[in-house]
Design a protein around this nucleic acid. Structure first.
Lengths: 196, 196
DNA sequence: CGAGTTCTTGACTGTCCCGTCCAGAACCTA
DNA sequence: TAGGTTCTGGACGGGACAGTCAAGAACTCG
């Protein structure tokens, strides 16, 4: 054995994530991350590889956390499925509205910046969206079974619509739409869902 | 008088736009733009100022063109308003689906990358979104007058929803959603609009 | 044609930044 | 405690990049 690491890997990844989140992939300097984490560059490179590998690690973790949090939120008994769906969409509007420094969602930001020319990022974004879609589909199907959303509508299609709406709220929030507008979008989207 | 410019300003701005579009603001080098336009760097700096000023010019033009094209598309007589609305949303899905190199929309990309820390970009994005919203509101109100969308629903709210959906289609397209999914979102969004 | 003005080009400068490397520190095992 | 191994920090090298500048080119007007 030998000298053990003196840093907490999770804390370092968290700080690195905040840095990428604040300035974007291309504009983030390794020295910024070194300063934010308190680590020397040698340690960073030794532990995580180069800038791209570090970002991929950060991004993987973020996607996993984001989808996991959504899973915990959306899964549950049929009776409260519609309520959970409602709260989920409302919460995204609320979070976006309350995000005063306009960081937005790291998936949205990274996908917009990198997916076009970075296959690894694109694949992870795609997977994250697919998982969110599945979760929404499951929740909508549950709400249909409970009689809160009309049967006869493909839950996967309604899920696609809601996913697009939430991603749209996110995008408009970055553009500076007012909290009232963002909330109105969430409410309207929920209101137009077919009721039995 | 003196030596006249030897380049076509529009062509140069077009080439610069493509470069920013392909690689994003931060990752685009002035030398790339010089190569793409065929101009020397001195000419670029002389004509447009520094990198940020050039990008702002490109972005202004893009926003103006994009909103103007939408205006031409959405404005018209009440009788065909719903059809225009339908075609507009479908066209966005189609364009996104057909965009094989996944450039997406420059507004979406630039807003995601820059709006957070660049007030000038944020302001322009916000204005572009506001204009698109107004156009959608006008078209929806026309469709309501023609009896194709139920009265009694605030057209501005429905417009917000559709704007969010189109921005969401755009975002999901960058993430690699399939053409079928994107078209399904557009169709579903149009299908859930309240009919009389 | 000549003087004056603006445009063009690309070499140049100074700075920045990625990734490496090494000398020393910290720790484990025996 | 000694020897082996991994971690740490920061200096360093090499390349890239934004923006400048000077010398000459192109053009107009008198």
């Amino acid at each position: 054995m030998a000298r053990p690491r003196s840093f907490d890997e999770r804390a370092v990844l968290h700080a690195a994530r905040d840095q990428f989140w604040a300035t974007g992939y291309a504009a983030t300097k390794i020295d910024d991350i070194a300063a934010a984490t308190g680590l020397g560059k040698g340690s960073l490179y030794g532990a995580f590889g180069d800038k791209h590998a570090l970002f991929l690690r950060v991004y993987d973790d973020y996607c996993a956390e984001a989808t996991e949090a959504t899973r915990r939120f959306l899964e549950g008994p049929d009776e409260t499925a519609y309520q959970r769906l409602h709260d989920h969409v409302s919460a995204i509007a609320e979070d976006t509205a309350a995000d005063t420094d306009r960081r937005g969602c790291l998936i949205a930001k990274s996908t917009a910046e990198c997916a076009q020319h970075d296959e690894a990022i694109a694949a992870r974004s795609h997977r994250a969206f697919a998982e969110l879609h599945d979760l929404l589909t499951g929740c909508i199907a549950a709400a249909q079974r409970a009689g809160d959303i009309a049967e006869g509508h493909d839950p996967a299609r309604l899920a696609s619509l809601l996913l697009a709406v939430t991603r749209g709220i996110e995008a408009l929030g970055k553009g500076g739409s007012s909290p009232a507008e963002l909330h109105a979008i969430a409410e309207t989207a929920l209101a137009v869902l077919p009721k039995p």
